[in-house]
């Protein structure tokens, strides 16, 4: 078979190119978790991706980001696992409604949670559905011979991909079905790993906070700690007013309404794609006030510079935020 991978279509800078994919299989991965396999309708190979990458699915009128769970080799089908969130914004319900043969628009993979190539050892920490990027990390680590271990915590009987994870990881896996047991295990790992180790965590916000806090207390520099947050956990935030420096317009941003939505409501067009703080599209320059960064896109340096904000999720620490719009 001749397998020539498609060159990514030329797009304007910042634009995310899309693939039209077909649902090839639907499986039950755990209670409330649906695993989808996506292929190109004509069998064309799909682009490879780094472990921890996500794709943005167009779910009706919403766009949601989901982690890919595969190894990432060029040509393999894309797999995602989606937890139904009855109180969510409808993206997960849309995915749960998909059947084999349905077609949907899927972005090219985007990488924001890749393993660090120089690491001597990788500690993967997964809570609940946070297992999805870690499954990708573990598969690729096996493929390329990287040293790793996976600490997986989930509710009793509710672990997505349990058998698959066990088969991939073997003795490198420890599973915890109680929160205290999970946190103790994570703390013990963080207390005693060789220099050169990096830790990666994905799961509910309290687990991520625990890992980041414990790592810091144990002297881990931030460069060794990598987190993938579920953006669904964002709180509604405090009200503030956006001052548009070019037009002089003032746009109030109430709690529960994103800065992006408020700008759009005021007739100000801002390019956006994922609306979850991952794609980088809706970056707006800040001219005054201190942004409250809640995105996954800006680097630490860019955050502390304070001169840009991802307006789809981030807000303001001050009552007023001046924007270059």
């Amino acid at each position: 078979m001749t397998a020539v991978l498609p060159a990514r279509p030329a797009t304007t800078p910042g634009e995310v190119p899309e693939l039209l994919l077909e649902v090839a299989a639907v499986a039950h991965a755990a209670d409330g978790v649906r695993a989808l396999t996506l292929r190109h309708p004509d069998g064309a190979p799909l682009p490879g991706y780094a472990p921890g990458s996500h794709v943005v699915l167009t779910c009706g009128d919403r766009r949601n980001a989901y982690s890919l769970t595969g190894e990432g080799a060029p040509g393999e089908a894309y797999r995602i696992s989606v937890l139904l969130r009855p109180d969510g914004r409808g993206g997960s319900a849309f995915v749960h409604g998909l059947a084999v043969g349905d077609r949907l628009a899927v972005s090219w993979p985007r990488s924001a949670f890749a393993p660090v190539a120089t690491a001597r050892h990788h500690v993967l920490v997964a809570g609940g559905i946070g297992i999805t990027p870690m499954l990708s990390h573990a598969r690729a680590a096996v493929r390329w011979g990287r040293s790793f271990e996976l600490v997986y915590g989930h509710r009793p009987g509710a672990g997505a991909h349990r058998e698959e994870v066990a088969a991939v990881c073997g003795e490198r896996l420890t599973v915890h079905e109680s929160t205290p047991g999970m946190l103790d295990a994570v703390a013990a790992v963080l207390a005693d790993r060789p220099i050169g180790t990096h830790v990666y965590v994905c799961g509910p916000a309290p687990l991520i906070d625990f890992v980041e806090r414990t790592a810091e207390e144990l002297g881990w520099p931030a460069e060794r700690v990598h987190a993938e947050r579920f953006s669904a956990d964002l709180d509604p935030g405090e009200p503030f007013t956006a001052h548009l420096s070019r037009s002089g317009v003032r746009v109030p941003v109430p709690p529960g309404v994103s800065l992006l939505a408020a700008l759009e409501g005021a007739g100000v067009a801002v390019p956006s794609t994922c609306r979850q703080g991952v794609c980088g599209e809706c970056r707006v320059a800040v001219v005054s006030g201190r942004p409250l960064h809640r995105d996954l896109y800006l680097s630490e340096a860019e955050r502390s510079a304070g001169d840009a904000v991802m307006c789809c999720v981030s807000r303001s620490l001050d009552d007023h935020l001046g924007l270059d719009l």
């Binding site: 060159a7 990514r8 995310v16 190119p17 682009p47 490879g48 991706y49 780094a50 990458s53 090219w108 993979p109 985007r110 990488s111 980088g280 680097s299 860019e302």
Partner: peptide, 12 residues
């Protein structure tokens, strides 16, 4: 460097 670090898979 900032520009390069933001390149996404498939970007050229």
């Amino acid at each position: 460097e900032q520009f390069l670090m933001r390149l996404q898979p498939g970007d050229a």
